[in-house]
Design a protein around this nucleic acid. Sequence first.
DNA 1: CGCTGCCTTGATCTTCTTCAAAACGTGTGG
DNA 2: CCACACGTTTTGAAGAAGATCAAGGCAGCG
Lengths: 253, 253
Amino acid sequence: MKERRKTPLISEPVPAHQCSIDLRLKIIGGLPFFAGLKPEEIAEINRSFHEKGFQSEETIFFAGDPASHLYVVADGRVKLMRHTVAGRDVLLELLIPGEFFGSLSAAPEEEYPETAVAMTPVCVLSIDKAAFRAVLSRYPSAALKVLDIVGHRLQSAREMVRQLSAFSVEKRIAYVLLRLADKLGKRRSVGLLIDTPLSREDLAKMTGATVETASRVMSAFQRQGLIDSGRQWVSLKDRPGLEAIASQDFELE
Amino acid sequence: MKERRKTPLISEPVPAHQCSIDLRLKIIGGLPFFAGLKPEEIAEINRSFHEKGFQSEETIFFAGDPASHLYVVADGRVKLMRHTVAGRDVLLELLIPGEFFGSLSAAPEEEYPETAVAMTPVCVLSIDKAAFRAVLSRYPSAALKVLDIVGHRLQSAREMVRQLSAFSVEKRIAYVLLRLADKLGKRRSVGLLIDTPLSREDLAKMTGATVETASRVMSAFQRQGLIDSGRQWVSLKDRPGLEAIASQDFELE
DNA sequence: CGCTGCCTTGATCTTCTTCAAAACGTGTGG
DNA sequence: CCACACGTTTTGAAGAAGATCAAGGCAGCG
Protein backbone atom coordinates (compact mmCIF):
# COMPACT_ATOMS: atom_id res chain seq x y z
CA MET A 1 0.00 0.00 0.00
CA LYS A 2 2.80 2.34 0.88
CA GLU A 3 4.87 1.59 -2.19
CA ARG A 4 4.86 4.85 -4.02
CA ARG A 5 7.02 4.64 -7.10
CA LYS A 6 9.46 7.31 -8.10
CA THR A 7 8.45 10.12 -10.37
CA PRO A 8 7.06 8.92 -13.70
CA LEU A 9 7.75 12.33 -15.22
CA ILE A 10 10.48 12.35 -17.82
CA SER A 11 12.65 15.33 -17.12
CA GLU A 12 14.05 17.33 -20.00
CA PRO A 13 17.17 15.47 -21.12
CA VAL A 14 18.67 18.50 -22.86
CA PRO A 15 18.97 21.87 -21.12
CA ALA A 16 16.59 23.46 -23.58
CA HIS A 17 17.93 26.88 -22.86
CA GLN A 18 18.36 27.50 -26.51
CA CYS A 19 15.37 26.80 -28.66
CA SER A 20 16.32 24.95 -31.75
CA ILE A 21 15.61 26.83 -34.96
CA ASP A 22 13.11 24.36 -36.32
CA LEU A 23 11.25 24.26 -33.00
CA ARG A 24 10.93 28.00 -33.24
CA LEU A 25 9.54 27.94 -36.74
CA LYS A 26 7.18 25.13 -35.89
CA ILE A 27 5.82 26.99 -32.88
CA ILE A 28 5.25 30.30 -34.61
CA GLY A 29 3.74 28.67 -37.66
CA GLY A 30 1.48 26.59 -35.45
CA LEU A 31 0.24 29.44 -33.28
CA PRO A 32 -3.54 29.33 -33.37
CA PHE A 33 -3.85 33.01 -34.03
CA PHE A 34 -1.60 32.92 -37.04
CA ALA A 35 -3.41 30.03 -38.62
CA GLY A 36 -4.52 31.03 -42.08
CA LEU A 37 -1.73 33.49 -42.77
CA LYS A 38 0.49 32.98 -45.79
CA PRO A 39 3.91 31.40 -45.23
CA GLU A 40 5.76 34.56 -46.22
CA GLU A 41 3.64 36.58 -43.79
CA ILE A 42 4.51 34.15 -41.03
CA ALA A 43 8.17 34.31 -41.96
CA GLU A 44 8.05 38.05 -41.63
CA ILE A 45 6.30 37.96 -38.28
CA ASN A 46 8.86 35.41 -37.21
CA ARG A 47 11.59 38.00 -37.58
CA SER A 48 9.99 40.16 -34.87
CA PHE A 49 10.36 37.42 -32.28
CA HIS A 50 13.36 36.83 -30.08
CA GLU A 51 14.04 33.67 -28.17
CA LYS A 52 15.20 33.15 -24.65
CA GLY A 53 15.78 30.19 -22.35
CA PHE A 54 15.11 29.84 -18.63
CA GLN A 55 15.99 27.21 -16.08
CA SER A 56 13.45 25.54 -13.88
CA GLU A 57 12.20 27.92 -11.16
CA GLU A 58 13.75 30.91 -12.86
CA THR A 59 11.55 34.00 -13.07
CA ILE A 60 10.74 35.31 -16.54
CA PHE A 61 9.32 38.58 -15.24
CA PHE A 62 7.97 39.87 -11.94
CA ALA A 63 4.60 41.35 -11.22
CA GLY A 64 5.19 45.08 -11.17
CA ASP A 65 7.94 45.09 -13.78
CA PRO A 66 7.26 47.48 -16.66
CA ALA A 67 5.28 45.50 -19.21
CA SER A 68 7.03 45.62 -22.52
CA HIS A 69 6.71 42.26 -24.23
CA LEU A 70 4.39 39.51 -25.15
CA TYR A 71 5.75 35.99 -24.73
CA VAL A 72 4.92 32.69 -26.31
CA VAL A 73 5.90 29.41 -24.69
CA ALA A 74 7.93 27.40 -27.19
CA ASP A 75 8.94 24.57 -24.87
CA GLY A 76 8.40 23.66 -21.23
CA ARG A 77 5.87 24.84 -18.64
CA VAL A 78 5.33 28.35 -17.35
CA LYS A 79 3.22 29.38 -14.36
CA LEU A 80 1.58 32.76 -13.81
CA MET A 81 1.24 33.90 -10.21
CA ARG A 82 0.05 36.81 -8.11
CA HIS A 83 1.53 37.52 -4.72
CA THR A 84 0.51 38.81 -1.33
CA VAL A 85 2.93 39.88 1.36
CA ALA A 86 1.64 37.15 3.63
CA GLY A 87 3.10 34.70 1.14
CA ARG A 88 -0.28 33.37 0.21
CA ASP A 89 0.49 33.38 -3.49
CA VAL A 90 -2.01 32.42 -6.13
CA LEU A 91 -1.21 30.30 -9.15
CA LEU A 92 -3.50 31.57 -11.88
CA GLU A 93 -2.46 29.75 -14.96
CA LEU A 94 -0.18 26.94 -16.06
CA LEU A 95 0.94 27.43 -19.65
CA ILE A 96 2.16 24.97 -22.24
CA PRO A 97 3.85 25.41 -25.62
CA GLY A 98 1.81 27.54 -27.98
CA GLU A 99 0.21 29.66 -25.25
CA PHE A 100 1.05 33.31 -24.72
CA PHE A 101 1.47 35.53 -21.70
CA GLY A 102 2.75 38.97 -20.81
CA SER A 103 1.56 42.25 -22.17
CA LEU A 104 -1.12 42.71 -24.77
CA SER A 105 -2.45 46.03 -23.75
CA ALA A 106 -2.13 49.36 -25.50
CA ALA A 107 -1.16 51.47 -22.50
CA PRO A 108 2.55 52.14 -22.82
CA GLU A 109 3.43 52.61 -19.13
CA GLU A 110 1.88 49.50 -17.75
CA GLU A 111 3.17 46.87 -15.38
CA TYR A 112 2.83 43.11 -15.56
CA PRO A 113 0.08 42.13 -13.14
CA GLU A 114 1.54 38.65 -12.70
CA THR A 115 4.86 37.00 -12.15
CA ALA A 116 5.84 34.40 -14.76
CA VAL A 117 8.02 31.53 -13.57
CA ALA A 118 9.49 28.58 -15.45
CA MET A 119 8.25 25.30 -13.95
CA THR A 120 10.66 23.29 -16.08
CA PRO A 121 13.51 24.28 -18.37
CA VAL A 122 11.72 26.60 -20.73
CA CYS A 123 12.16 28.27 -24.07
CA VAL A 124 10.07 31.35 -24.79
CA LEU A 125 9.71 33.62 -27.79
CA SER A 126 9.13 37.29 -27.10
CA ILE A 127 7.89 40.16 -29.19
CA ASP A 128 7.62 43.83 -28.37
CA LYS A 129 4.03 44.55 -27.44
CA ALA A 130 3.70 47.39 -29.94
CA ALA A 131 5.01 45.12 -32.69
CA PHE A 132 2.49 42.48 -31.72
CA ARG A 133 -0.35 44.95 -31.77
CA ALA A 134 0.79 46.09 -35.18
CA VAL A 135 0.56 42.50 -36.39
CA LEU A 136 -2.92 42.17 -34.91
CA SER A 137 -4.14 45.32 -36.53
CA ARG A 138 -2.80 44.19 -39.88
CA TYR A 139 -4.38 40.74 -39.60
CA PRO A 140 -7.85 41.08 -38.09
CA SER A 141 -8.38 37.33 -38.10
CA ALA A 142 -5.43 37.02 -35.73
CA ALA A 143 -6.87 39.73 -33.51
CA LEU A 144 -10.16 37.87 -33.28
CA LYS A 145 -8.40 34.64 -32.39
CA VAL A 146 -6.47 36.37 -29.65
CA LEU A 147 -9.73 37.88 -28.45
CA ASP A 148 -11.25 34.40 -28.26
CA ILE A 149 -8.35 33.11 -26.21
CA VAL A 150 -8.48 36.01 -23.79
CA GLY A 151 -12.25 35.52 -23.59
CA HIS A 152 -11.70 31.90 -22.62
CA ARG A 153 -9.25 32.85 -19.94
CA LEU A 154 -11.78 35.32 -18.60
CA GLN A 155 -14.36 32.57 -18.41
CA SER A 156 -11.99 30.31 -16.60
CA ALA A 157 -10.99 33.01 -14.11
CA ARG A 158 -14.66 33.68 -13.42
CA GLU A 159 -15.29 30.00 -12.92
CA MET A 160 -12.53 30.01 -10.35
CA VAL A 161 -14.18 32.98 -8.61
CA ARG A 162 -17.40 31.03 -8.48
CA GLN A 163 -15.71 27.99 -7.04
CA LEU A 164 -13.80 29.94 -4.43
CA SER A 165 -17.05 31.59 -3.41
CA ALA A 166 -19.16 28.51 -3.20
CA PHE A 167 -17.25 25.22 -3.00
CA SER A 168 -15.13 23.31 -0.53
CA VAL A 169 -11.40 22.79 -0.96
CA GLU A 170 -12.05 19.14 -1.75
CA LYS A 171 -14.24 20.04 -4.71
CA ARG A 172 -11.88 22.70 -5.95
CA ILE A 173 -8.95 20.32 -5.90
CA ALA A 174 -10.93 17.66 -7.72
CA TYR A 175 -11.88 20.26 -10.31
CA VAL A 176 -8.32 21.49 -10.78
CA LEU A 177 -7.00 17.95 -11.15
CA LEU A 178 -9.54 17.30 -13.87
CA ARG A 179 -8.68 20.50 -15.74
CA LEU A 180 -4.96 19.73 -15.48
CA ALA A 181 -5.55 16.23 -16.77
CA ASP A 182 -7.51 17.65 -19.71
CA LYS A 183 -4.64 19.92 -20.54
CA LEU A 184 -1.60 17.87 -19.58
CA GLY A 185 -2.88 14.33 -19.27
CA LYS A 186 -0.82 11.47 -20.66
CA ARG A 187 -2.22 7.94 -20.81
CA ARG A 188 -0.18 5.60 -18.66
CA SER A 189 -0.64 2.01 -17.59
CA VAL A 190 -2.24 3.20 -14.36
CA GLY A 191 -4.32 6.19 -15.26
CA LEU A 192 -3.84 9.66 -16.62
CA LEU A 193 -0.55 11.20 -15.63
CA ILE A 194 -0.45 14.98 -15.28
CA ASP A 195 2.62 15.74 -17.30
CA THR A 196 4.28 18.48 -15.29
CA PRO A 197 6.03 18.73 -11.94
CA LEU A 198 3.24 19.56 -9.51
CA SER A 199 3.77 19.91 -5.78
CA ARG A 200 1.19 20.07 -3.00
CA GLU A 201 2.09 23.70 -2.71
CA ASP A 202 1.31 24.34 -6.38
CA LEU A 203 -2.03 22.66 -5.92
CA ALA A 204 -2.72 24.72 -2.81
CA LYS A 205 -1.89 27.93 -4.65
CA MET A 206 -4.18 26.95 -7.49
CA THR A 207 -7.13 26.35 -5.18
CA GLY A 208 -6.82 28.98 -2.49
CA ALA A 209 -5.90 26.47 0.18
CA THR A 210 -2.90 25.81 2.41
CA VAL A 211 -0.31 23.14 1.74
CA GLU A 212 -1.58 21.14 4.71
CA THR A 213 -5.17 21.13 3.57
CA ALA A 214 -4.16 20.25 0.02
CA SER A 215 -2.09 17.38 1.36
CA ARG A 216 -4.95 16.07 3.50
CA VAL A 217 -7.33 16.14 0.54
CA MET A 218 -4.83 14.42 -1.72
CA SER A 219 -4.21 11.74 0.88
CA ALA A 220 -7.93 11.14 1.12
CA PHE A 221 -8.23 10.90 -2.67
CA GLN A 222 -5.39 8.42 -2.68
CA ARG A 223 -6.99 6.33 0.06
CA GLN A 224 -10.19 6.26 -1.99
CA GLY A 225 -8.26 5.05 -5.03
CA LEU A 226 -9.10 8.15 -7.05
CA ILE A 227 -5.53 9.15 -7.73
CA ASP A 228 -1.97 8.00 -7.45
CA SER A 229 0.58 10.53 -6.43
CA GLY A 230 4.07 11.09 -5.16
CA ARG A 231 6.62 13.82 -4.84
CA GLN A 232 5.72 16.43 -7.44
CA TRP A 233 3.53 14.24 -9.57
CA VAL A 234 -0.11 13.18 -9.78
CA SER A 235 -1.92 10.62 -11.88
CA LEU A 236 -5.70 10.17 -12.09
CA LYS A 237 -6.91 6.62 -11.58
CA ASP A 238 -10.66 7.22 -11.41
CA ARG A 239 -11.77 10.16 -13.49
CA PRO A 240 -15.51 9.58 -13.07
CA GLY A 241 -14.99 9.40 -9.32
CA LEU A 242 -13.29 12.76 -9.29
CA GLU A 243 -15.94 14.20 -11.54
CA ALA A 244 -18.57 13.05 -9.10
CA ILE A 245 -16.81 14.87 -6.29
CA ALA A 246 -16.22 18.02 -8.32
CA SER A 247 -19.80 18.32 -9.42
CA GLN A 248 -21.85 16.72 -6.69
CA ASP A 249 -24.53 19.13 -5.56
CA PHE A 250 -24.53 21.10 -8.80
CA GLU A 251 -25.08 20.02 -12.34
CA LEU A 252 -23.82 22.36 -15.04
CA GLU A 253 -20.21 22.93 -16.04
CA MET B 1 -26.97 58.00 15.96
CA LYS B 2 -29.68 55.74 14.70
CA GLU B 3 -31.12 58.30 12.32
CA ARG B 4 -30.52 56.68 8.97
CA ARG B 5 -32.01 58.78 6.24
CA LYS B 6 -34.04 57.36 3.42
CA THR B 7 -32.47 56.30 0.20
CA PRO B 8 -30.50 59.07 -1.48
CA LEU B 9 -30.71 57.25 -4.79
CA ILE B 10 -32.84 58.94 -7.38
CA SER B 11 -34.94 56.30 -8.99
CA GLU B 12 -35.60 56.45 -12.69
CA PRO B 13 -38.51 58.87 -13.11
CA VAL B 14 -39.45 57.56 -16.54
CA PRO B 15 -39.96 53.84 -17.21
CA ALA B 16 -37.03 53.83 -19.63
CA HIS B 17 -38.26 50.70 -21.33
CA GLN B 18 -37.90 52.33 -24.65
CA CYS B 19 -34.58 53.94 -25.35
CA SER B 20 -34.99 57.33 -26.85
CA ILE B 21 -33.54 57.62 -30.33
CA ASP B 22 -30.96 60.23 -29.45
CA LEU B 23 -29.85 58.22 -26.41
CA ARG B 24 -29.26 55.35 -28.74
CA LEU B 25 -27.19 57.35 -31.17
CA LYS B 26 -25.23 58.95 -28.37
CA ILE B 27 -24.40 55.58 -26.85
CA ILE B 28 -23.28 53.92 -30.04
CA GLY B 29 -21.29 56.90 -31.17
CA GLY B 30 -19.68 57.14 -27.75
CA LEU B 31 -18.72 53.50 -27.48
CA PRO B 32 -15.02 53.38 -26.72
CA PHE B 33 -14.35 50.77 -29.35
CA PHE B 34 -15.96 52.78 -32.11
CA ALA B 35 -14.05 55.93 -31.26
CA GLY B 36 -12.22 57.09 -34.35
CA LEU B 37 -14.65 55.69 -36.89
CA LYS B 38 -16.24 58.04 -39.39
CA PRO B 39 -19.80 59.20 -38.70
CA GLU B 40 -21.19 57.34 -41.69
CA GLU B 41 -19.48 54.17 -40.58
CA ILE B 42 -21.05 54.55 -37.15
CA ALA B 43 -24.42 55.22 -38.73
CA GLU B 44 -24.13 51.98 -40.64
CA ILE B 45 -23.08 49.97 -37.61
CA ASN B 46 -25.97 51.57 -35.79
CA ARG B 47 -28.39 49.88 -38.16
CA SER B 48 -27.24 46.45 -36.99
CA PHE B 49 -28.30 47.15 -33.42
CA HIS B 50 -31.70 46.51 -31.95
CA GLU B 51 -32.96 48.01 -28.76
CA LYS B 52 -34.83 46.43 -25.91
CA GLY B 53 -36.04 47.53 -22.49
CA PHE B 54 -36.16 45.59 -19.23
CA GLN B 55 -37.69 46.28 -15.87
CA SER B 56 -35.78 46.16 -12.65
CA GLU B 57 -34.96 42.56 -11.65
CA GLU B 58 -35.94 41.25 -15.07
CA THR B 59 -33.56 38.73 -16.60
CA ILE B 60 -31.98 39.64 -19.93
CA PHE B 61 -30.64 36.15 -20.53
CA PHE B 62 -29.91 33.08 -18.45
CA ALA B 63 -26.65 31.22 -18.06
CA GLY B 64 -27.01 28.24 -20.37
CA ASP B 65 -29.17 29.96 -22.96
CA PRO B 66 -27.76 29.67 -26.47
CA ALA B 67 -25.44 32.63 -26.90
CA SER B 68 -26.48 34.59 -29.93
CA HIS B 69 -26.03 38.28 -29.23
CA LEU B 70 -23.74 40.87 -27.86
CA TYR B 71 -25.39 43.55 -25.75
CA VAL B 72 -24.47 47.09 -24.88
CA VAL B 73 -25.97 48.85 -21.88
CA ALA B 74 -27.58 52.08 -23.06
CA ASP B 75 -29.22 53.07 -19.80
CA GLY B 76 -29.46 51.62 -16.30
CA ARG B 77 -27.44 49.00 -14.46
CA VAL B 78 -26.97 45.36 -15.40
CA LYS B 79 -25.45 42.64 -13.23
CA LEU B 80 -23.75 39.47 -14.46
CA MET B 81 -24.07 36.42 -12.24
CA ARG B 82 -23.15 32.75 -12.06
CA HIS B 83 -25.22 30.29 -10.11
CA THR B 84 -24.80 27.19 -8.01
CA VAL B 85 -27.60 24.89 -7.01
CA ALA B 86 -27.01 25.70 -3.37
CA GLY B 87 -28.12 29.22 -4.19
CA ARG B 88 -24.71 30.64 -3.46
CA ASP B 89 -24.72 32.84 -6.50
CA VAL B 90 -21.80 34.98 -7.50
CA LEU B 91 -22.12 38.52 -8.79
CA LEU B 92 -19.25 38.94 -11.22
CA GLU B 93 -19.76 42.29 -12.79
CA LEU B 94 -21.93 45.36 -12.45
CA LEU B 95 -22.26 47.14 -15.77
CA ILE B 96 -23.09 50.73 -16.60
CA PRO B 97 -24.03 52.48 -19.85
CA GLY B 98 -21.42 52.01 -22.56
CA GLU B 99 -20.28 48.59 -21.34
CA PHE B 100 -20.97 45.41 -23.23
CA PHE B 101 -21.85 41.86 -22.24
CA GLY B 102 -23.07 38.64 -23.81
CA SER B 103 -21.42 36.73 -26.57
CA LEU B 104 -18.24 37.70 -28.34
CA SER B 105 -16.93 34.33 -29.24
CA ALA B 106 -16.64 32.70 -32.61
CA ALA B 107 -18.09 29.31 -31.72
CA PRO B 108 -21.61 29.20 -33.08
CA GLU B 109 -23.17 26.73 -30.66
CA GLU B 110 -22.15 28.32 -27.44
CA GLU B 111 -24.06 29.13 -24.29
CA TYR B 112 -23.94 32.23 -22.14
CA PRO B 113 -21.81 31.41 -19.15
CA GLU B 114 -23.54 34.07 -17.04
CA THR B 115 -27.00 35.30 -16.29
CA ALA B 116 -27.61 38.99 -17.02
CA VAL B 117 -30.16 40.76 -14.84
CA ALA B 118 -31.40 44.35 -14.86
CA MET B 119 -30.70 46.03 -11.51
CA THR B 120 -32.74 49.07 -12.50
CA PRO B 121 -35.00 49.81 -15.44
CA VAL B 122 -32.62 49.19 -18.30
CA CYS B 123 -32.27 49.84 -21.98
CA VAL B 124 -29.89 47.62 -23.93
CA LEU B 125 -28.80 47.52 -27.55
CA SER B 126 -28.15 44.14 -29.06
CA ILE B 127 -26.33 42.94 -32.12
CA ASP B 128 -25.98 39.50 -33.57
CA LYS B 129 -22.62 38.12 -32.55
CA ALA B 130 -21.60 37.28 -36.10
CA ALA B 131 -22.46 40.81 -37.19
CA PHE B 132 -20.38 42.21 -34.37
CA ARG B 133 -17.44 40.05 -35.28
CA ALA B 134 -17.77 41.22 -38.86
CA VAL B 135 -17.56 44.80 -37.67
CA LEU B 136 -14.47 43.98 -35.61
CA SER B 137 -12.76 42.31 -38.48
CA ARG B 138 -13.47 45.27 -40.72
CA TYR B 139 -12.21 47.80 -38.15
CA PRO B 140 -9.10 46.39 -36.47
CA SER B 141 -8.83 49.39 -34.17
CA ALA B 142 -12.20 48.45 -32.72
CA ALA B 143 -11.06 44.86 -32.29
CA LEU B 144 -8.01 45.99 -30.36
CA LYS B 145 -10.12 48.19 -28.10
CA VAL B 146 -12.45 45.32 -27.37
CA LEU B 147 -9.41 43.17 -26.67
CA ASP B 148 -8.18 45.76 -24.17
CA ILE B 149 -11.51 45.80 -22.38
CA VAL B 150 -11.68 42.03 -22.16
CA GLY B 151 -8.08 42.06 -20.97
CA HIS B 152 -9.04 44.43 -18.19
CA ARG B 153 -11.91 42.25 -17.13
CA LEU B 154 -9.56 39.31 -17.03
CA GLN B 155 -7.24 41.25 -14.75
CA SER B 156 -10.07 42.18 -12.47
CA ALA B 157 -11.39 38.61 -12.31
CA ARG B 158 -7.90 37.40 -11.44
CA GLU B 159 -7.59 40.03 -8.75
CA MET B 160 -10.83 38.70 -7.29
CA VAL B 161 -9.37 35.18 -7.34
CA ARG B 162 -6.38 36.45 -5.44
CA GLN B 163 -8.53 38.16 -2.87
CA LEU B 164 -10.79 35.18 -2.35
CA SER B 165 -7.71 33.02 -1.88
CA ALA B 166 -5.91 35.26 0.54
CA PHE B 167 -8.01 37.90 2.25
CA SER B 168 -10.72 38.13 4.89
CA VAL B 169 -14.29 39.07 4.10
CA GLU B 170 -13.73 42.44 5.74
CA LYS B 171 -10.92 43.28 3.32
CA ARG B 172 -12.81 42.03 0.33
CA ILE B 173 -15.83 44.13 1.16
CA ALA B 174 -13.68 47.22 1.72
CA TYR B 175 -12.08 46.56 -1.66
CA VAL B 176 -15.38 46.10 -3.46
CA LEU B 177 -16.82 49.26 -1.95
CA LEU B 178 -13.81 51.20 -3.19
CA ARG B 179 -14.07 49.78 -6.70
CA LEU B 180 -17.80 50.49 -6.81
CA ALA B 181 -17.19 54.03 -5.63
CA ASP B 182 -14.60 54.47 -8.39
CA LYS B 183 -17.09 53.33 -10.95
CA LEU B 184 -20.38 54.64 -9.61
CA GLY B 185 -19.41 57.23 -7.02
CA LYS B 186 -21.33 60.51 -6.85
CA ARG B 187 -20.13 63.33 -4.62
CA ARG B 188 -22.69 64.10 -1.94
CA SER B 189 -22.68 66.36 1.09
CA VAL B 190 -21.70 63.39 3.22
CA GLY B 191 -19.30 61.33 1.18
CA LEU B 192 -19.28 59.38 -2.02
CA LEU B 193 -22.61 57.80 -2.80
CA ILE B 194 -22.54 54.55 -4.76
CA ASP B 195 -25.10 55.31 -7.41
CA THR B 196 -26.98 52.05 -7.76
CA PRO B 197 -29.32 50.02 -5.62
CA LEU B 198 -27.04 47.73 -3.65
CA SER B 199 -28.29 45.29 -1.03
CA ARG B 200 -26.32 43.37 1.56
CA GLU B 201 -27.06 40.34 -0.51
CA ASP B 202 -25.50 41.90 -3.62
CA LEU B 203 -22.43 42.75 -1.60
CA ALA B 204 -22.29 39.22 -0.23
CA LYS B 205 -22.52 37.76 -3.73
CA MET B 206 -19.77 40.05 -4.92
CA THR B 207 -17.38 38.97 -2.18
CA GLY B 208 -18.08 35.28 -1.67
CA ALA B 209 -19.68 35.82 1.72
CA THR B 210 -23.11 35.27 3.25
CA VAL B 211 -25.66 38.02 3.78
CA GLU B 212 -25.16 37.81 7.53
CA THR B 213 -21.41 38.20 7.36
CA ALA B 214 -21.71 41.06 4.90
CA SER B 215 -24.19 42.74 7.22
CA ARG B 216 -21.91 42.36 10.23
CA VAL B 217 -18.99 43.85 8.35
CA MET B 218 -21.07 46.74 7.09
CA SER B 219 -22.37 47.43 10.57
CA ALA B 220 -18.83 47.51 11.87
CA PHE B 221 -17.77 49.89 9.09
CA GLN B 222 -20.69 52.11 9.97
CA ARG B 223 -19.81 52.10 13.66
CA GLN B 224 -16.28 53.12 12.74
CA GLY B 225 -17.61 56.00 10.68
CA LEU B 226 -16.19 54.63 7.45
CA ILE B 227 -19.47 54.47 5.60
CA ASP B 228 -23.06 55.49 5.79
CA SER B 229 -25.62 53.03 4.59
CA GLY B 230 -29.24 52.07 4.58
CA ARG B 231 -31.61 49.85 2.73
CA GLN B 232 -30.05 49.21 -0.66
CA TRP B 233 -27.61 52.06 -0.62
CA VAL B 234 -24.09 52.81 0.55
CA SER B 235 -22.06 55.98 0.76
CA LEU B 236 -18.36 56.19 1.61
CA LYS B 237 -17.49 58.67 4.35
CA ASP B 238 -13.83 57.81 4.87
CA ARG B 239 -12.15 56.57 1.75
CA PRO B 240 -8.63 56.52 3.19
CA GLY B 241 -9.90 54.54 6.12
CA LEU B 242 -11.37 51.92 3.82
CA GLU B 243 -8.24 51.88 1.74
CA ALA B 244 -6.23 51.20 4.88
CA ILE B 245 -8.42 48.19 5.65
CA ALA B 246 -8.38 46.90 2.09
CA SER B 247 -4.63 47.04 1.80
CA GLN B 248 -3.29 46.61 5.29
CA ASP B 249 -0.75 43.81 5.35
CA PHE B 250 0.05 44.14 1.69
CA GLU B 251 1.22 47.07 -0.34
CA LEU B 252 0.63 46.86 -4.08
CA GLU B 253 -2.67 47.33 -5.87
C1' DC C 1 24.68 8.04 4.39
C1' DG C 2 23.08 11.95 5.80
C1' DC C 3 21.09 16.38 4.19
C1' DT C 4 17.45 19.11 2.25
C1' DG C 5 13.08 19.79 0.79
C1' DC C 6 8.60 17.67 0.11
C1' DC C 7 4.88 15.53 2.17
C1' DT C 8 2.02 13.91 6.05
C1' DT C 9 -0.50 13.93 10.31
C1' DG C 10 -2.22 15.66 14.71
C1' DA C 11 -4.10 19.28 17.88
C1' DT C 12 -5.78 23.69 18.49
C1' DC C 13 -7.77 28.03 17.16
C1' DT C 14 -10.04 31.36 14.10
C1' DT C 15 -13.15 32.81 10.75
C1' DC C 16 -17.12 32.33 8.69
C1' DT C 17 -21.39 29.80 8.00
C1' DT C 18 -25.75 28.27 9.57
C1' DC C 19 -29.90 28.60 12.03
C1' DA C 20 -33.06 31.46 14.36
C1' DA C 21 -35.50 35.50 15.47
C1' DA C 22 -36.28 40.17 15.96
C1' DA C 23 -36.19 45.11 14.23
C1' DC C 24 -36.49 48.20 10.72
C1' DG C 25 -37.82 50.79 6.14
C1' DT C 26 -40.52 51.24 2.36
C1' DG C 27 -44.31 51.41 -0.39
C1' DT C 28 -49.20 50.08 -0.39
C1' DG C 29 -53.94 49.93 0.43
C1' DG C 30 -57.31 51.36 3.38
C1' DC D 1 -52.36 60.07 6.06
C1' DC D 2 -51.78 56.15 8.80
C1' DA D 3 -51.03 51.44 9.55
C1' DC D 4 -49.97 47.16 7.90
C1' DA D 5 -47.12 43.80 5.43
C1' DC D 6 -43.16 42.43 3.18
C1' DG D 7 -38.51 42.27 2.19
C1' DT D 8 -34.14 43.84 3.99
C1' DT D 9 -31.11 44.22 7.65
C1' DT D 10 -29.42 43.17 12.13
C1' DT D 11 -27.90 40.40 15.97
C1' DG D 12 -27.07 36.21 18.66
C1' DA D 13 -25.55 31.50 19.47
C1' DA D 14 -23.81 27.21 17.88
C1' DG D 15 -21.28 24.61 14.56
C1' DA D 16 -18.00 23.46 10.76
C1' DA D 17 -14.39 24.10 7.48
C1' DG D 18 -10.06 25.25 7.08
C1' DA D 19 -5.80 27.79 8.94
C1' DT D 20 -2.14 27.64 11.94
C1' DC D 21 1.30 25.62 14.81
C1' DA D 22 4.19 21.76 15.53
C1' DA D 23 6.46 17.40 14.67
C1' DG D 24 7.85 13.62 12.07
C1' DG D 25 8.60 10.78 7.88
C1' DC D 26 10.19 9.92 3.32
C1' DA D 27 12.47 10.61 -1.26
C1' DG D 28 16.07 11.79 -3.93
C1' DC D 29 20.71 13.66 -4.22
C1' DG D 30 25.37 14.94 -3.28
